[in-house]
Simulated scan of single mutants.
Amino acid sequence: MGLERRAYARVGLLGNPSDMYGGWALSFTIADFSATVRLRPSPELLIQPHPHHDLVAFPSLPQLVSRLQSEGYYGGVRLLMAICKVFYNHCIQNNISLKAEKFTLSYDTNIPRQAGLSGSSTIVCAALSCLLNFYDVSHLIKVEMRPNLILNAEKEVGIVAGLQDRVAQVYGGDWFICLCITQDFSQEHMDKLGHGIYMPLDVNLLPPLYLIYAENPSDSGKVHSSVRQRWLDGDEFIISSMKEVAQPAFDGHKALLQKDYTELARLMNKNFDLRREMFGDDVLGSVNIKMVEAASKFTGSGGAVVALCPDGDSQVELLRKACQEAGFVVQQVKVAPSVLTDARGAVKFISFLVER
Rank of each mutant, 00 (worst) to 15 (best):
255 A>I: 08
249 A>I: 02
263 E>F: 08
245 V>F: 07
251 D>M: 10
273 D>Q: 10
266 R>V: 08
253 H>I: 10
257 L>Q: 15
260 D>A: 08
259 K>Q: 15
264 L>A: 01
253 H>K: 14
257 L>H: 10
246 A>D: 07
247 Q>N: 11
270 K>Q: 13
260 D>R: 00
250 F>E: 12
276 R>N: 14
279 F>N: 05
266 R>F: 07
276 R>C: 09
245 V>W: 05
252 G>V: 03
272 F>I: 02
274 L>D: 03
251 D>Q: 12
272 F>H: 13
260 D>I: 01
255 A>D: 06
262 T>F: 13
245 V>T: 06
252 G>A: 06
266 R>G: 09
269 N>G: 10
272 F>P: 03
254 K>Y: 13
277 E>I: 12
279 F>A: 11
277 E>Y: 06
245 V>R: 09
245 V>D: 01
278 M>F: 03
244 E>M: 15
256 L>I: 07
271 N>C: 01
269 N>E: 09
267 L>F: 00
249 A>N: 07
274 L>W: 01
264 L>N: 04
270 K>H: 11
274 L>V: 06
277 E>N: 13
272 F>D: 05
256 L>F: 15
267 L>R: 03
269 N>P: 00
261 Y>C: 09
245 V>C: 10
258 Q>S: 10
274 L>Q: 01
275 R>D: 05
253 H>E: 12
269 N>R: 12
270 K>W: 06
268 M>G: 06
268 M>D: 04
256 L>H: 01
259 K>G: 05
247 Q>M: 14
251 D>T: 00
278 M>K: 02
260 D>V: 06
258 Q>P: 08
245 V>H: 05
247 Q>D: 12
251 D>Y: 03
278 M>Q: 08
276 R>L: 08
267 L>K: 00
277 E>F: 09
271 N>I: 05
269 N>I: 11
251 D>L: 13
254 K>Q: 14
250 F>C: 10
279 F>D: 05
249 A>Y: 03
256 L>Q: 02
244 E>T: 09
249 A>G: 02
279 F>M: 13
255 A>C: 07
256 L>K: 04
278 M>N: 06
246 A>I: 00
270 K>L: 14
268 M>P: 06
245 V>Q: 11
261 Y>S: 11
260 D>P: 06
259 K>C: 13
249 A>P: 03
251 D>H: 00
248 P>K: 05
